[in-house]
């Protein structure tokens, strides 16, 4: 009797697990590759939109990220509607969450990074100012929903240590010229043309400092928080190749980059050896004083919509108007 009872329990528990596992499979399919979602949404499309030519009809669902997101900061700055996002926007948790949610809502508009898997999330990229968002177009600067990641170092002779100065020069070479550096940056989401780079082994000869023990040297980076991920990846890759130097990253904003290296904060507690900005340097920021300055990669944001949404292109004023809540319906978009 007892055996019989426990047998029933075991069978039921097992079937429960199988049931749960099946549920799990279903929803992962729906979230990441919604095979039946387009079928449902076409029905909705027919209901709201009798004439296919006039495009989509209905309320625009604006998807955004939470206020601390770097992608949101870049997007609002580039499309020029900072602090003006509509109160009706839905906030998503991450780039992946945004892609999955926009892919499940026909009336949605959102934005993701260029490295997102568009097809898997059932979303499409929308052209900006008539230009398709591709890595090539970002690099040739025709796609304008992009921004440069710039660097500037302290002035030559201002590092307080010749080895440190040589090491910073070596890191800049690694960051801007080597294949290894470019790979590290692109793995962190930065856009960089890897094909034009050379192997670090070829560059290394110009920087003898990397072959000595540098564990007593600490490189301090300051500036934009947006570049942090890419720079951390590059520094971590470079560290074992360059005598295990130490580094400290104290990023607080683009303005701090030039200020802490060549500007008024260069001898204060906010000083750094390399400063970064996720925008072009201003004329008032005297980056020409630095030992070296330039752009090490680009960052791009892509406007996205559900894949069956007929929208193909948006310009800056349309984008800003949608995200500010001034254009509220798809039919109002000319």
């Amino acid at each position: 009797m007892k055996i019989f009872r426990s047998l029933i329990i075991i069978i039921l528990v097992l079937s429960l697990f199988v049931g749960l596992a099946a549920c799990g499979e279903n929803e992962s399919e729906e979230t990441y590759a919604p095979t039946d979602a387009p079928a449902e949404t076409t029905v909705a499309l027919e209901e709201t939109d009798p004439t296919a030519e006039s495009g989509l009809q209905g309320e625009i669902h604006v998807y955004s990220r939470d206020a601390s997101s770097g992608t949101r900061g870049a997007f609002e700055e580039l499309a020029d509607f900072e602090e003006q996002l509509t109160d009706n926007a839905i906030l998503t948790e991450s780039n992946g969450d945004m892609a999955a949610k926009v892919g499940a809502d026909l009336l949605a508009i959102g934005y993701v990074s260029l490295t997102t898997d568009f097809a898997a999330n059932n979303i499409k990229a929308v052209n900006y100012e008539g230009v398709e968002p591709t890595e090539e177009n970002v690099l040739n600067e025709s796609y304008t929903l992009a921004r440069p990641f710039n660097y500037v170092t302290r002035a030559a002779g201002d590092f307080g240590d010749a080895d440190k100065e040589a090491l910073v020069a070596a890191f800049i070479a690694f960051l801007t010229e080597s294949v290894e550096g470019a790979n590290a940056i692109s793995s962190a989401g930065g856009i960089v043309d890897v094909s034009s780079k050379r192997a670090w082994a070829d560059l290394q000869a110009d920087h003898p400092v990397v072959s000595q023990d540098n564990s007593g040297i600490e490189i301090v980076t300051v500036g934009s928080t947006s570049v942090e991920k890419a720079i951390r990846a590059a520094l971590e890759t470079f560290q074992p190749m360059a005598g295990n130097f130490n580094f400290k990253m104290s990023h607080a904003g683009s303005g701090e980059g030039p200020a802490g290296t060549v500007g008024e904060e260069k001898d204060t507690a906010k000083k750094g050896d390399i400063g970064f900005a996720s925008r072009a340097f201003k004329d008032t920021e005297e980056v020409i004083l630095g030992m070296s300055t330039g752009t090490f990669c680009l960052d791009a944001v892509v406007i996205c919509a559900e894949s069956s949404n007929p929208i193909a292109n948006l310009n800056q004023s349309q984008t800003a108007a949608i995200f500010k809540g001034e254009i509220q319906n798809w039919e109002d978009l000319d």
């Binding site: 549920c23 799990g24 279903n26 929803e27 729906e30 979230t31 909705a44 709201t48 809502d105 949605a108």
Partner: peptide, 25 residues
């Protein structure tokens, strides 16, 4: 994940019955 994958879909379909469009459920 169950809610994000299944409940939202149900809510979206349910709202569709009343002609209401939701944010993907």
């Amino acid at each position: 994940v169950y809610a994000a994958g299944t409940i939202t879909g149900l809510v979206d379909d349910f709202a569709g019955l009343f002609g209401i469009s939701t944010y993907g459920g």
